[in-house]
Simulated assay, not measured.
Amino acid sequence: MSIKDNYFFAKELAELHKISKQTLIFYDKKNILKPAFIDNNGYRMYSLKQYFILGIILDLKKMGFHLKDIITFLDNRDTNNILELLHKQLNTLTKQKAIINKLCDAIQSKINLIETYNSRKLNEITLSYQEKEYFLVSDQITLSKSQKERFLIAAELLSSATDNNGIKEYDLTGFIFTLPCLDKKPDFYQVFCKTNENNYNYTKNYDLYLQIFVNHNFHDALNYAQPQITDFCAALDLNLSNTIFIKTFKNYWTSDSHSNFISKIEIPIIKKN
């Protein structure tokens, strides 16, 4: 019996672990797993023990460990060392999991927004009860300010709703107008972003709302829809609140022009005694 009968060729070991032979060559060059010996024909030969060591290396690699940590562990294999490495990696992956979950939520929110305006008819007024929402709201922004000044105020608000990893903690933005009546021109507005119960300064209450989607940006949405809303309320004898929410649904994410933007106007209905 040849001594080689108790050893694996590099190709055999690679096939057993479903990796490429080049991976073994890479581990050899990095001094992670060198062959037990190289025979006279230049073949790399590996022992049964190395079969199991390679399995540990591949397991650690799948768990996200860096090569330097794997080498450190292999040089000093004991329970305390592996526990320390595993706890450290679990903490890292837990943080990454939280980030991934946030990103998944952000993607799902964007899908929901796009599906919402794709499924709604434009210029159609509806009445429905809306759930409570939590907003971060800016101070009043006067329309006499330059466009840049107004934008910077909005940008500061949106920046405050971003976590330490740069992930947005809001899924919708919009504008709040306070008007004595619909045909009056506003002097100011406020910017909002929809957040959660952990980070908000304004509550949009559960209530009955008049709603309409229009093919305009927030500046022109109310002017465009005002005649239709006025006629609708007169026909049904409805009284509207003086607080108007204009949510941005279709924006630069799906269009390169303001002319294609879609805004949703929401106005609370005042209940009669």
Rank of each mutant, 00 (worst) to 15 (best):
D78C: 07
G64C: 02
L60P: 00
K49D: 12
K68R: 15
I53C: 01
K68Q: 14
Q89P: 06
D78S: 07
I71E: 11
L83T: 07
D75L: 04
L90I: 10
D75K: 12
H66E: 15
I53P: 02
F52E: 09
L83A: 06
L54Q: 04
K68W: 12
I70Y: 09
L90S: 13
N76V: 06
H66V: 11
G64P: 02
I57F: 03
L54W: 08
T72N: 11
L83I: 06
T72S: 11
G55D: 15
F73M: 03
L67P: 02
L85D: 01
S47T: 13
L54H: 06
Q50I: 05
M45D: 01
K62R: 15
K62C: 07
I53W: 04
M63E: 08
D78Y: 10
D69N: 11
K88T: 04
L90D: 12
K68H: 15
H87A: 05
Q89I: 03
F65S: 00
M63K: 09
K61E: 10
L60R: 00
L85A: 01
H87V: 04
L60V: 00
I70V: 10
L54D: 02
Q89L: 06
I82T: 04
G64N: 07
Y51R: 13
G64D: 04
I53G: 00
H87R: 12
M45Q: 10
N80H: 14
I56D: 14
I70A: 03
D59V: 08
K68M: 09
L48F: 11
L54E: 04
F65Q: 00
Q89N: 14
Y46K: 02
